[in-house]
Design a protein around this nucleic acid. Structure first.
Lengths: 346, 346
DNA sequence: CTGTTAGCGCGTTCAT
DNA sequence: ATGAACGCGCTAACAG
């Protein structure tokens, strides 16, 4: 009892409520749960007592005896990215609509995979009833052992593994669509900044598709691996320098809006602008990257749809209403804007 | 044994591990906890058994018997905002360093306060050992009853209430600093877009400070309430129109970078640019708003510091190492950029 | 060093 | 309509 704040009084239990209301714990349990078989007068008395002492039922104890937690666990790679932030909001919304609560866990930094494994274990240890894995980097192998006993969906990235559901934006289709756009603008030599699968499964898939589709259009593609240039969206000066040195390139396709911003900034530092000097495209089109001010030509990912369907899928699995795992590719859409235009002869 | 549907095998318990390892549950418990008094050979045997059957201890049961959950609960208003996203990451990082896990809960939509109350109860029901409340809108009154029995800190907003700790950026100091900057640039008539405390305690405090400080500099201030113009950062056309109609105004101070972007977009739709037509300032300077491309003159909030100190505060309270509640105002810093310059005679 | 016992707070039979 | 007793999975005493 050191300071003014006595944090030592432990939380009131159902027992305390029973004492105040002058009934047994069983009655309190039923009254609060709205079960039948309790006198209306008793119900109000119990509720008043609960409110009076600030009773909040212990979800842990409840989960143990009821063997249900009504909780969905969401693993996100990096909460500071708007992409995951929006997804999280969509999960939350739909989970509430379906009668579930959501707890989220994150790896500590954005990098070490080991942190994500631990975060996943945290969720499992909490005995969440469903798992939504939302990380472009965590290998399926780490998810599979849990997916076997907890309804799981991998959200936001393509995942072909047959033993776990997935809901994602059609990355290849998006990459193709953007490539079609760039080709149709008239570009004949294009630099594509590609990403390794180990760094990001989604970005890798879409940039691969861009390369393939451009070639299909007969475009001369210069494929540049991001890992050869530091793999940091904020530091792509050497990449831009390299592209300038190449000669003849009129467009640059980046793996994401974030990367595109990095490219645009690096260009600006060299006095280059889009689309005058190079056309530039991004990917994601999530607010605030999506602002008109930036005007980045991009491919929109329908995160709200992905979020809703992911939750529906896990909840259906929990309710046994689902016949098995499913893989749903959601279509995005082209967002033409200011950073990409017709090629300029230099 | 088909996959996808075999979710019926419930999670392995400590009992199962004991059976496989051929020891009692107590030994398993101690071996896995790394407690003293277990033969090295037994430890490895138990660990192998646990790994073999994929045992993950039930945190709920553990929390009940140990009366400790080693979990911090974070309530965030809107995860899709980069501001909260970055804060979350900072919490996560420091909590891990201090040996705690983090679970977060969010209101379903960003608006109804009732949702946030429920989210707070979710956290309490989970019996988190510490609470970090991170919402510019939830009234203290809703937090107080829990703060009395759970170590709590209100993060990211000024909160003077004596019975709960808080860590925040000095909003008034920031508002003053930005106002000083605008005044020093030579502006003599400035429109300030203010926010009501009920909408956002932080934005209200900083915009009030801007108004006061500008007046102190003898600047003619036009105070415009955001709620009179829809209170939506994405739809400020009527606001901009109003400012243009005013005449003589050379600068606009917005409550946040998000609002500033809305203003800049609305200006752009009318063919107006910053700083040529109006100087514009924001507030927060959080990535990705902080990109050079946007070049918004702003005030940087040190979210990483706020996050770290918040966690330290709650954990110290939990450990009983804290002498009481404290209120720490962290200084931000001016970020001069392209959207604010000397006034232009029009 | 290891096994046994007793709860943690709650929902759920089963009696009353 | 209400109360008593049991068990969920686990840790913490206590024996051996």
């Amino acid at each position: 009892m050191q300071n003014g704040m006595g944090h030592h009084d432990s939380a009131p239990t159902i027992h305390d409520v029973a004492a105040v209301a002058g009934v047994s714990k069983s009655v309190v349990s039923r009254a609060l749960a709205g079960s039948y078989g309790v006198a209306p007068a008793t119900v109000t008395r119990v509720k008043r007592a609960a409110a009076e002492i600030g009773y909040v039922a212990n979800a842990n104890a409840r989960g143990m005896s009821a063997r249900r937690t009504h909780t969905l666990g969401v693993l996100v790679r990096d909460a500071s990215t708007p992409f995951y932030g929006h997804l999280l909001t969509a999960f939350q919304l739909q989970a509430a609509a379906r009668g579930y609560r959501v707890v989220t866990a994150t790896g500590a930094g954005s990098f070490p995979i080991e942190d994500e494994r631990r975060a996943l274990e945290t969720l499992v240890s909490l005995r969440v009833e469903g798992l939504i894995v939302c990380s472009g980097a965590l290998p399926v192998e780490d998810v599979l052992p849990f997916a076997g006993r907890i309804p799981t969906v991998i959200a936001g990235r393509p995942e072909a593994n047959a033993s776990v559901s997935s809901v994602y934006c059609d990355e290849r289709g998006g990459g193709r669509g953007l490539a079609d756009h760039v080709a149709s603008l008239g570009h004949r030599r294009v630099a594509v900044l590609t990403v390794a699968p180990s760094a990001s499964i989604t970005q890798s898939a879409r940039t691969d598709a861009m390369v393939r589709q451009l070639r299909k259009h007969g475009v001369d593609v210069v494929r540049i691996r991001s890992e050869d240039h530091g793999a940091d969206p904020h530091d792509v000066d050497s990449f831009v320098e390299h592209v300038v040195g190449l000669g003849g390139v009129t467009a640059i396709m980046a793996p994401s809006d974030l990367w595109a911003i990095g490219v645009l900034e690096a260009m600006a530092r060299r006095g280059l602008r889009a689309p005058q000097d190079f056309s530039v495209t991004g990917y994601d089109h999530v607010w605030p990257y999506a602002t008109e001010l930036l005007g980045i030509t991009s491919w929109r990912q329908p995160l709200d749809v992905i979020g809703t369907l992911s939750v529906d899928d896990v909840v259906d699995q929990i309710d046994g209403r689902s016949s098995g795992t499913m893989h749903r590719a959601i279509d995005g859409e082209l967002v033409p804007a200011r950073t990409a235009g017709a090629p300029t002869v230099r």
